[in-house]
Design a protein around this nucleic acid. Sequence first.
DNA 1: AACTCCCGAGATAACGTTATCTCGTTGCGC
DNA 2: GCGCAACGAGATAACGTTATCTCGGGAGTT
Lengths: 323, 323
Amino acid sequence: MADVAREAGVALRTVSRFVNGDATVGEDFADRIRRAIETLDWQPDERARQLRSGRTRTIGAAVRNISDAHPVLRAVDESARAAGLTVVAMSTEDDEEREREAVVSMCRRRMDGIIIEPIAENHGYLQPEIDSGMPVVAFDRPATGVEVDTVLSDNRGGIALAFEHLVRQGHRRIGYIGDDERIYTGHERAVAFHECLRAHCSAATGMVHPGPIDPARIAAALNRLRSDPEPATAILTGNASTTVAVIRQLGGDFGSIALVGFDDFALADLLRPGLTVVAQGEAEIGRTAIDLFQARAADPSRPVQTVTVPTTLIPRGSGELAP
Amino acid sequence: MADVAREAGVALRTVSRFVNGDATVGEDFADRIRRAIETLDWQPDERARQLRSGRTRTIGAAVRNISDAHPVLRAVDESARAAGLTVVAMSTEDDEEREREAVVSMCRRRMDGIIIEPIAENHGYLQPEIDSGMPVVAFDRPATGVEVDTVLSDNRGGIALAFEHLVRQGHRRIGYIGDDERIYTGHERAVAFHECLRAHCSAATGMVHPGPIDPARIAAALNRLRSDPEPATAILTGNASTTVAVIRQLGGDFGSIALVGFDDFALADLLRPGLTVVAQGEAEIGRTAIDLFQARAADPSRPVQTVTVPTTLIPRGSGELAP
DNA sequence: AACTCCCGAGATAACGTTATCTCGTTGCGC
DNA sequence: GCGCAACGAGATAACGTTATCTCGGGAGTT
């Protein structure tokens, strides 16, 4: 920048003003500076800029996986972009240690905020950052042990949507295979399924098989559901991985039993029959996360808020099969 | 850091030495500093650190899309991580303007290097950065107008693999539907298909329909292939989007005509029949990109290198259908 | 005992920006 | 003609680190 100033024959500070769009730079000076920048191929150093100004205009996103499709991340990125913010995403790979590394890295980079898809059992380690004014927004699951703004899917509503859809198709024995109940979403969805069973006790019975996602367990659960004296005529799966595992396990039998999956995924419509799913409002979740971040940044003392985003049932065939 | 130094009763520089793992810090001093850091909840400022040391230990990855599945990005991230580097990925969204924004942002952040999946027609704008010693590695497509290290898939070999596989299944009329020939991979694969036709002229005839990926065009191409007096008995698609578009268009007819897709994608095995594909070596591409980056960083004057990564045929059923 | 050498630690000067303060001009009202 | 505000521009001091140089003192050598 000093070189540019010398080349243009102006003061260092004037180049800075020009770069920052300060209107107090005369047109003749601006021209000379423009030319000098061109000549020297100079670009401002973002690190120094951030260091001096104290703002990074960057928020960190600690998500489960960067490299897989991640519709929420896309929405976060777009909303942030629209607000003039840069998003730096890091993978936690479903690992507590990795999550922490990501968060530490974001803090060391003095990012303006953190959007996190929580993995760790306890997020107390975030407290010092929160206390020092770092806006933190959790999505998909609540962050345990700290109070932060949160965006969740309407897990219970989504399960109810699917359950009632199957009941409407005439199913009276519905099986549920879902994620580990120690995981928040796994717990919520299994509980919701139980509630549906209670609410429809006269109309439907059902079986629940939550646990870790692992082909062998899925296969066992599936076999139990189908080999029952009164076998299930419909299956509700608690997340995309489970859905896929169930479809793999069903093999050629896919289509012989009704199936509704919680969480949509790419190409689910290409299956035969098409896969009926409860879709989460990922775009809205992402947008809301950024909204909450901005609200918090604008007013650090506002009460923490939890937003629940509704789900939608997308019928594609597999959920409309008769018992 | 000054606060930590005061709290620990040592000099600023000693805290710095401790943080950087300098062995010349005595154990008693180290203890006091550790305690002071703990007490004050201090974390070093990465921006200042980078500014002063001149190194960011960060490389930028400008890829087509962050939010969709991106196996190369995963490999890049993992290899970089293993080398103690952080990857910051940005989406180009297949847009020249966005690509340029991403690259500019990376330069302003003074990243140690750039890994790019080139979109722009001309990458001459990278020349000043390259000249100033910024290592740049392109993958998937070459960067036009500049000489940089490059990692490519063996597009021609992959098309040949698929073509010969179909010929071996007895197909004599094979159609090709691919991407726009103005795009490098679209061009390479279409040319390779033509070469295969020439090489097998006695054994096979075929039709080529490259162009932009758009459902209407795919439908038209497909109809032409199938309504020919001597219709195609097998189709080879030039990339994943085309493959998916073709499968959508085929609808219930999927499985009535042999299909091999270039580029694998998640859940292709769930289709009935399973989708036979030519898989690219994404993990190796990613690893190689990081290798080339490191080699260039270590020796800026080394000659630029282009590495071609082989492809593999994965038979899953759709490509093994008889004519 | 004098000399060198090395080692652990501190003082000071950058790194490339922006914030703050200062200063000389100019324009305008009275 | 004077004062005063407004304005455009420059000088200088940070921001939070690390690089370089300096220095005191203890161990080893002759």
